[in-house]
């Protein structure tokens, strides 16, 4: 008799991800797969993927999927959800996608209170294009377009963008939480946040948003375990963890 403590989620295909070793995308993708299985979302769910390191993610899941243009995932998801509000639409975006190219799209999806779930991977860097500066790059953090010794400087590039706080200001966004995946406990907390955000969509509430501080060891030029520490040491100081807004009760 075998009793499984942890088994690869069923919705996953056999594909090996194209992510680098220690990449947070892999952890969040896995939590999504676990929730798809646990919440039975394969039947009625549509995943909307972005451009960036996760642009090949559709092939990891036996799920209906739409791979949007850069930044346009919330617009495409608006079309999908408005065409058929009975579907569970999960939008997944990175920081180049959501904060740079798609700032207008995410803001206006929030302004309209689109009833879908947005998972935002904030790793403070452009992964796929080769470690260029993101709008979420920390001050002083180096990137190929914000080189050493100065890294990102205010005069040139302004300040890191706090999306979970910005979106929480919008009445159409009923839930906004920032989590991370740099320890076993926080991975469990991240899954809880994602589950809540998806459940709010299934309950027909407004937009739910989860920002995940995610390690990018390659982009940050660090060993993976060092990248986990960097989230604690640097990232959480600029991007505090926690529930920023929960208006799910009022939205009833």
């Amino acid at each position: 008799m075998r009793k499984y403590v942890y088994k690869r989620p069923e919705v996953f295909t056999d594909a090996i991800t194209t992510y680098c070793g220690g990449c947070g995308h892999g952890i969040v993708n896995k939590l999504m797969a676990e929730l798809i299985d646990e919440m039975g979302l394969q039947e009625n769910g549509i995943l909307v993927w972005p451009i960036g390191c996760s642009c090949l993610s559709d092939r990891y899941y036996d799920m209906d999927a739409y791979m949007a243009l850069h930044g346009r995932a919330p617009a495409a998801a608006t079309g999908i959800k408005r065409a058929d509000p009975s579907k569970c639409v999960i939008v997944y975006q990175g920081d180049g996608d959501l904060v740079s190219e798609g700032m207008a799209e995410i803001m206006h999806a929030g302004i309209r209170g689109e009833k879908f779930t947005v998972i935002f991977i904030n790793n403070a860097i452009y992964g796929m294009t080769g470690a260029q500066m993101a709008p979420t790059t920390l001050l002083g953090q180096t990137a190929t377009t914000a080189p050493a010794p100065l890294g990102r400087i205010v005069d040139n590039s302004g300040y890191p963008v706090k999306m979970a706080e910005i979106l929480a200001e919008l009445p159409g966004v009923i839930y906004s939480e920032r989590v991370t995946v740099n320890s076993p406990q926080r991975i469990i907390a991240c899954k809880k946040a994602l589950k809540k955000a998806i459940q709010l969509q299934l309950d027909g509430k407004g937009m739910s948003f989860v920002e995940v501080l995610s390690p990018c060891p390659t982009g940050w030029k660090m060993a993976p375990t060092k990248a986990l520490d960097w989230i604690d040491d640097e990232m959480t100081k600029v991007y505090p963890l926690g529930v920023i807004k929960d208006a799910s009760k009022e939205a009833e």
Binding site: V5, Y6, R8, T17, P184
Partner: peptide, 20 residues
């Protein structure tokens, strides 16, 4: 068999089970 290794694995490469 706490499953922690499997839960933190970004590549879902680990399976943990108990066997009689």
């Amino acid at each position: 068999a706490c499953g922690t290794c499997a839960r933190v694995c970004p590549d879902t490469a680990i399976t943990v089970y108990k066997e009689d």
